[in-house]
Design a protein around this nucleic acid. Sequence first.
RNA 1: GGGCGCAUAGCUCAGUUGGUUAGAGCGCUACAUUCACAUUGUAGAGGUCAUAGGUUCAACUCCUAUUGCGCCCACCA
Length: 897
Amino acid sequence: MSEELSKQYNPKEIEDKWYKYWEDNNLFAAKPALDKSSYSIVIPPPNVTGALHMGHALNNTIQDILIRYQRMKGKNVLWMPGTDHAGIATQNVVEKTLAKEGLKRQDLGRDKFIERVWQWKELYGSTIIRQLKKLGASCDWSRLRFTMDCEYSIAVTEVFVRLYEKKLIYRGTYIINWCPRCLTALSDEEAAHKELQGSLYYLKYPLKDNPKEFIKVATTRPETMLGDTAVAVNPKDKRYKKYIGKILILPLMNRQIKIIADTLVDMEFGTGAVKVTPAHDPNDYMLGKKHNLEFINVLSPDGTMNAAAEKFCGLDRFIAREKIVEELRSMGLLEKIQPHTLSAGHCYRCHTLVEPYLSKQWFVKMKPLAKPAIAAVKKGHIKFHPERWQKVYLNWMENIQDWCISRQIWWGHRIPVYYCKECQVGKSQINSKFKSQKSKIENGVIVSRTKPDKCPKCGSIELTQDEDVLDTWFSSWLWPFATLYWPKENADLKYFYPTATLVTAPEIIFFWVARMIMAGLEFKKQIPFKDVYIHGTVRDIEGKKMSKSLGNIIDPLEIISQYGTCALRFSIISITACGQDVYLSKEKFEQGRNFANKIWNASRFILMNLNPDDVAVDLCVFFKQEKLDIVNRWILSRFYTTLEKVGKELDNFKFNEAANSLYAFFWHEFCDWYIELAKPQILEKNTQVVMFKILEKYLRILHPFMPFITEEIWQKLPGAKGSIMQQTWPHLQNELINKNDEEQMQLAFDIINTIRNMRQELEVDLTSRIEIKLTPANKEGRDSLEQLIPYIKNLAKIENLIFSEKYIVQKNEYACVLKNMHIVMPLQGIVDAEEIYKKNQAKIDKLKFEIKNKETMLANKDFLGRAPKEIVDTEKTKLNDMHQQIVKLEAIKNGLR
RNA sequence: GGGCGCAUAGCUCAGUUGGUUAGAGCGCUACAUUCACAUUGUAGAGGUCAUAGGUUCAACUCCUAUUGCGCCCACCA
């Protein structure tokens, strides 16, 4: 007898204890074992700067459920943990701390700054890891990786070199997204398009031949006009035909620019004439190349105007915009300003408006990499859950653009490219004026796995490494195999790769998921994972995305300290339908807390009443030897039905349904009915065994969802050996599932509930014991009811239960119809007979209507031909029941009159 | 401009390939309380399944259109 369990579940006291126990006993450790098949998951590495938020909580709970489930099912599991160096984000954070000391990174210099970042990482970088442990994550922490680890860098460099050698990496000058705050190039994915209220400015450019005649152009960014080198019109446009080839004078700059014709120009938009700024707009860049125009860069990297902007030099782009508009207005060259909404890219890290900017960067040619990655998904080698994300993936992959991978920041993997001064090599010259696209730059570029001592061509030792670092995602896309020390082909890599499932959020399908598939196929010649489970976005109760800046965060750690980890995990899983967004409020975690408490108290009750000597038996053997009563048979059947259901749901990534199945079984069947029914016979051996075995097995299937509470209770069970983590997932025992027993019990429950209803309806004292007459429709019904009598009597508080053969209702009696059953109760107190009469009449009318529908359905040849036999049969029995009910209702009705 | 998702009880949402009387949690109402659990129990009220058509013996479920909300992608200056 255990009496040490407190009245309420107290998570704080036990969670850390059990987590430590698991770690101390190496229960998370994964080693290749040839006699077992592997199941591995790589964690989406959180940023080292990160702190646990609800998105992590959801993401990692799902992974932990999968891992713990597969571990118990006998798979050799690996959950690979790690963090991401998060180039720009981390650099920003460290720069902020520097700013507090009044320093800039340039004050420290590159090496010192990077040292500071590493220091910062040592101090704060493991915060998120500690928090993941609070969440119960069962990662193999001995394998913790970081995307800037030495060995990881080897993989990154290897990949760069291989791609370069395959001519899939190239350097070139193109319009890229430039963040003037972070002072770096961004990939297309890192420039998040947002709508903003802007203006459309109509400018007038005078013709050289006739300064009184103007061509009007419309622009949203008037400051770029300083870099205009042409105006373009559509060749079909009648308004402008006569001007094609003529020369305009660019105001403020007094530069001569040509009017060119190109079909790209939309005649409908603006004035139909468009200013062409090849250095500051992707479309204009294309026009510039096509028509051999000059490329004039008028912006500095920090978003101020540069020397090419002459008198506007040094002004911020937005101030310059105002000044230029003012000056044009005073010159009479501003036609009008219209409000205009446009969508423009913003830096995904600092939300600054990015500038399309001409600069020399490194790119990955994506089309050849995308091809096999598209095929892998189309052939079904990789499956998305829910399926709809497959379309999103394919759509992006089929329209993929080259990937700009160089970043002008310091924190990250240095590009493994070296330039030989002797061989006349230029380095990335962002701020240079562009005169010619044809440069000899590729001469003297050395791409090498290790730093070369001298130039292989001329032998010069004057080598400088490229200043830039690689996009963070250029290391993340190698995560599934680089964490296993690729390019070394070791035993771990062979055993655990490819991984089984990737669990992630929709936001990073392009950034990460798609690229991992490409990398896996390119470098490992194998898909990186078989299933991709995309969960929803966590939002607040108003549907807004949870974010620090909006201040609508619910802190998972706060929920953990208030309600416990198990409550957090259970709640968040039970409200996360496959791929749907999650709307959270604090109150939603009460359900998880209440459930944990319910499990706690039910277990406490069972343990208080348990005789340990009785329960040390094998359930199946016991079941075959003993003749169990229907209540015990029923709950066993229900348990195994639930076990089967939960297994299927987990295999199909239906986590919320699995959680709800577990919840409904335990609370509404095991506690509400079984324990209540079993109380009078709780000391009988049969009940002891069944009650205990179900609790013990149930704890195991609940464990992946609620690891701490199940471990705590498990350890208190008599005969418990080791951790619940090490137990096997219960085997399905089909012979214990008995649908007939389930139906019988359901009938008993219905009777009990009906009697309770009748008492309430008739205002009969609910505590008093009364006498009830039951009229089963046939002998079988009667036989099956006889074994249920004690239970029904007890729960429905019936003094005496009499079977009667006739349907006749006496004068001071009231009756109800339940399926093919007739329940008669003596009338007590004052009851409005007329009202009951009317109610019955309404029921009869409704039934008649339904009978009519059923009859036409059953008379229909199409239905009989198409519908499965089972359905036809059940429909027929239903119809029969209905007819019988009508008869009985009529009898009751007539009795009342 | 293209694509996707959502609309079901007062609120938040489930509902597997069309087939019981459409479910859960929270909230609300009534009753219960030395009994494992008030973080409880029993019951109740509350739904024209967004709207309009169509397919079908049968539609919350499939098709078409409409409305409202949300998300993603896109070079309209």
